[in-house]
Amino acid sequence: MIDIKNISKWYGSFQVLTDCTTTIKKGEVVVVCGPSGSGKSTLIKTVNALEPIQKGDIVVDGISISDVKTNLPKLRSRVGMVFQHFELFPHLSVTENLTLAQIKVLGRNTEEAKTRGLKMLDRVGLIAHKDKYPGQLSGGQQQRVAIARALSMDPIVMLFDEPTSALDPEMVGEVLDVMVKLAQEGMTMMVVTHEMGFAKKVSNRVIFMDAGKIVEDCTSDEFFGDPEARSPRAKEFLSKILQH
């Protein structure tokens, strides 16, 4: 589904990603973790070409993102993305947030878009808030709307960029619940997160990054079950993160 092939990325002379390679298969849930500044958020943003890469290539559902002939907007419309800071459109109501891209990008008619959007809103348990504006919702609710917005586009894969790190602790659960449900329904997911509980519970694979490199890429059972077999950097990270 997603083929990341030897990609590298620089900001000026500073290299943020070095020769990263991995593959995400259909139906797989892959968690990307690692210390701050390790390049995980950058990596996930390269998948739908929000961040350009200078070397290597990424192939999403058979389409290369670095091919000049690729229609990037069209490709992105099939890849759902959820951001750390939600990024709902604050000038639009919840319903408009859900239908805007369906209408303008996918060309669906208003009724169709509304039906689909509200169905997704119901799925994240927020149908009662359909006429509110994002600013009237809590962080957790906004993030669930953001997930519904992405799902309304019928994506083939969902990317989550630290979806719970900007939330108050008591709201993390409601967002993770939605994501767990999604994973169990078979959605292909790439998730940058520090939520190791989530990773243990639903992920098939864990990618551990450090200093712009993929240090570990193994099954979730290996990653959490066999700490001794891990690289020193991952061991250190795990010991810190799992202590509490």
Binding site: K45, N48, L50, P73, K74, L75, R76, S77, R78, V79, G80, M81, F83, H85, E87, L88, F89, L100, A101, K104, V105, L106, R149, A150, M153
Partner: peptide, 23 residues
């Protein structure tokens, strides 16, 4: 307008003119 809004527009498949006009 925060950069994240532009990202969000692009992420749902908008072109540059759409992202400017709608977001």
């Amino acid at each position: 307008v925060p950069k994240g809004q532009v990202y969000a527009g692009y992420a749902v498949g908008m072109t540059y003119p759409q992202c400017m006009q709608l977001v």
